[in-house]
Design a protein around this nucleic acid. Structure first.
Length: 427
RNA sequence: GGAGGGGUGUCUGAGUGGUUGAAAGAACCGGUCUUGAAAACCGGCGUGCCGCAAGGUACCGGGGGUUCGAAUCCCUCCCCCUCUGCCA
């Protein structure tokens, strides 16, 4: 949520910012107008309430003195009716204002490239070198099937398309990678590990900005009004919702969770294998920081994610997203993409964003600064990193001519010392 | 799932429908005293909104209602505790 004062006082600047991301300005204009209405109404009702409070107290005094108060009471009752009417009018305006505010995306950071879609993104760097093959590299589906790492056909029987099933060394590799990443973030990068609920309530979804816009993309349990999390960002960032944080900033949290996404609207896209699925695992990093540090913290966040990939010796690149490609709540975002030689394309495995105080306002998450003044924190999050595509990249980048996959050294301790994945009979 | 009890400020904990935003204590901040500290004493000490300000207004788990007036009464939802049932 944006600061309504900012909209009130710097409307043109906000409008220009939103225009950069190609956002409609309808909600913004509504918010501006409703805010003006709201302020007028508040002034009026407050005045009425003041009057009522005074008169009601007089009644109390008169009654104690044993005097008749019928007439005054009648007067105040009329006043009460006026207040009720004004209040309900005010409530409607406030509700409409809230709806408008919840639908306005964040203003992009001034320094990011301008563009309306992915074509406007800027490549920051490429790290490592693409692997060279003396043979035609296979894609992860073929590798996975040959080595018996995946069983997508049976997974369809169990649930449906898009719900992958890993087995044997594949399942173990995935688990090993989770452990490897969590260990790195907690022991080297200063994060505290959380194992949060995978199902959250509506307030939490609104807090991080998935609702109201993304309702169609998420799994909803109607009976309980709960949602399956599309990312650990939701439960982890909501950890401090409605709080004035009681500990020194910055606070770094990390969590492994499965993620559930309906991927509505992407039917037919990347449907083969585990490239785009309805359920996947991810290790997420979340930061709560002081406003003045948030952009420096974003750079560090990207490095934390990079360390995972560097440690595995993978070839990747970093993109700085343009104004039209960042998510609803973000002000600035870097994507990290892994090279997938079998698919001959880049795969997004991490998105690192600075939300400034956009989420904090929705979450009502604040802290006391050095002067003891209460302020909204800045929140950031980044994948550290998403698993299926990490597995894909490992399989495809480290595949060998003999059909095996050489495991990165860093992961071997988590795989009982195993050096490569080879075809194994299912026991 | 069933029965009962309860949700008040940073914490503990009062609160009869009427100057109660809310007693008291603790914690915390400032001051006096002290060589320094502790103790003692004095003062301060919630948040949002409207307002240039003075000030006003709202908030005692959430929402709604009764009333001239609600932390106090009623309804409803959520959460916690105790007992009990079923169960990984």
């Amino acid at each position: 949520m944006l600061d309504i004062k900012r909209i009130r006082e710097n409307f043109a600047e906000v409008a220009a910012g939103l225009a950069r991301r190609g956002a409609e300005l309808t909600y913004l204009e509504q918010a501006r107008d409703l805010d003006a209405q709201r302020r007028t109404l508040v002034t009026e009702t407050d005045a009425l309430k003041k009057e009522r409070n005074t008169r009601s107290k007089e009644i109390g005094v008169l009654k104690k003195a044993g005097q008749d108060t019928t007439e005054v009471q009648a007067d105040v009752r009329v006043m009460g009716d006026q207040i009720t009417a004004k209040d309900s009018e005010l409530r409607e305006v406030e509700e409409a204002l809230r709806t408008a505010m919840l639908n306005i995306p964040n203003v992009p950071c001034a320094t990011i490239p301008t563009g309306l879609d992915a074509s406007g993104n800027r490549e920051v760097c490429q790290v490592g070198v693409p692997p060279h093959f003396d043979f035609k590299p296979l894609d992860h589906i073929e590798i996975g099937e040959r080595l018996g790492l995946l069983d997508l056909a049976r997974a369809v029987k169990i649930t449906g398309s898009g719900f992958p099933l890993m087995l044997g060394q594949g399942a173990q590799l995935q688990r090993a990678l989770i452990q490897y990443m969590l260990d790195m973030h907690t022991t080297q990068h200063g994060y505290t590990e959380l194992l949060p609920p995978f199902v959250v309530n509506t307030d939490s979804m609104r807090g991080t900005g998935q609702l109201p816009k993304m309702a169609e993309d998420m799994y909803h349990c109607e009976v309980d009004d709960f949602w399956l999390i599309p990312t650990a960002e939701v439960p982890v960032t909501n950890y401090f919702r409605n709080e004035i944080m009681d500990r020194p900033l910055p606070v770094y949290l990390t969590a492994y969770t499965p993620c559930f996404r309906r991927e509505a609207g992407s039917a037919g896209k990347d449907t083969r294998g585990i490239l785009r699925v309805h359920q996947f695992d991810k290790v997420e990093m979340v930061k709560f920081v002081e406003p003045r540090n948030s952009y420096a913290e974003l750079e560090l966040l990207v490095k934390d994610a990079e360390d995972v990939l560097k440690g595995l010796g993978l070839h990747y690149r970093i993109l700085e997203l343009c104004s039209g490609d960042i998510s609803f709540a973000a002000a600035k975002c870097y994507d990290i993409e892994l090279w997938a030689p079998g698919h001959n394309c880049w795969l997004e495995v991490s998105s690192c964003s600075n939300f400034e105080d956009f989420q904090a306002r929705r979450l009502n998450c604040r802290y006391k600064d050095a002067e003891g003044k209460i302020q909204f924190v800045h929140t950031l999050n980044g994948s550290g990193v998403a698993l299926p595509r990490l597995v894909i990249a490992i399989l495809e980048q480290f595949q060998q001519a003999d059909g095996s996959v050489l495991l990165p050294e860093a992961i071997r301790p988590y795989m009982q010392g195993r050096e490569k994945l080879v075809a194994a009979m299912l026991r």
